[in-house]
């Protein structure tokens, strides 16, 4: 039976106004509310769809962040067979290099055939988790995937390109897929089902001692977007606008 591992993380919930911490290099966590990364939610949904379709085993793994238990129990209520929490110093946020290294270490022990992760997250400063994870595991990575079918030790994936192009790729497992969208929107799980899971299911905990963020970005300053009138609207027909654009590019020295 194909074993699918889904990695998930929580990202800042944008219904709250974001504030910059005193350090000036990070968001103020005291005012932050976290929500599951939308793309990871789709990755979980895609895994459950595959389970329903092909009888896979689904494991969801995620770092310990405030509210993660609810997310994991919700995944269990949807049909995840095993839920794992990485317990370590995640509260202040870690970069994706560190997260991917930690996930890679656990993944080696779990030994899944297919790894699904959200293609991106709104707090990806240093690139997204999927490619790093694939790199650390030495696996193939395909991103922007919207649709997966399993055929033996292969996965047929639909990868979305800009401009409405879709490629059908055959990937030999094991592989990491960055999910753009599940085949159907993430399903609703009744609150009582989640509560039931809280009583019945248990979260496996894996201790993470070291977090290695090397290779990531060093944030020197973070600030809210400033309102400014910098936009200049170009009038005229296509020829005129193109000519003016080239002029501007020359002025600012990009061409």
């Amino acid at each position: 039976m194909t074993h699918i591992l889904v990695t998930a993380k929580l990202v800042p919930d944008l219904v709250e106004e974001l504030e910059i911490a005193e350090s000036g290099t990070a968001l103020d966590m005291t005012w932050l509310r976290l929500i599951i990364n939308e793309f990871d939610d789709h990755a979980i949904e895609q895994a459950i769809i595959l389970k329903e379709r092909s009888g896979c085993e689904v494991t969801v793994i995620a770092p310990d962040q405030e509210g993660m238990d609810d997310v994991l129990f919700t995944a269990a209520a949807k049909g995840a067979d095993r839920i794992i929490k990485l317990v370590g110093d995640f509260e202040e946020g870690v970069n994706n290099h560190a997260l991917a290294r930690t996930l890679a270490a656990s993944t080696k022990e779990i030994g899944p055939d297919l790894i699904l992760t959200g293609v991106q997250g709104n707090d990806d400063f240093d690139g997204s988790v999927g490619p790093y994870l694939a790199e650390y595991l030495g696996m193939t990575y395909v991103g922007y995937v919207a649709g997966v079918t399993l055929e033996g030790d292969k996965a047929i994936v639909h990868k979305e390109y800009p401009g409405g192009l879709i490629a059908e790729l055959e990937v030999t497992l094991p592989a990491v897929l960055g999910i753009q969208a599940a085949e159907q929107p993430p399903r609703y799980v009744a609150v009582s089902k989640v509560r039931q899971m809280m009583k019945e299911a248990s979260i496996d905990e894996v201790d993470v001692l070291d977090l290695d963020p090397s290779g990531g970005l060093e944030i020197s300053s973070m600030y809210l977007p400033e309102a400014a009138e910098r936009a200049e609207m170009l009038d005229g027909d296509e020829e005129e606008i193109a000519a003016r654009l080239v002029e501007i590019f020359k002025e600012i020295g990009v061409v």
């Binding site: 009744a190 609150v191 009582s192 089902k193 989640v194 509560r195």
Partner: peptide, 8 residues
């Protein structure tokens, strides 16, 4: 019909 949410 979302009784669990209602209770919450």
């Amino acid at each position: 019909g979302e009784e669990g949410l209602f209770e919450m």
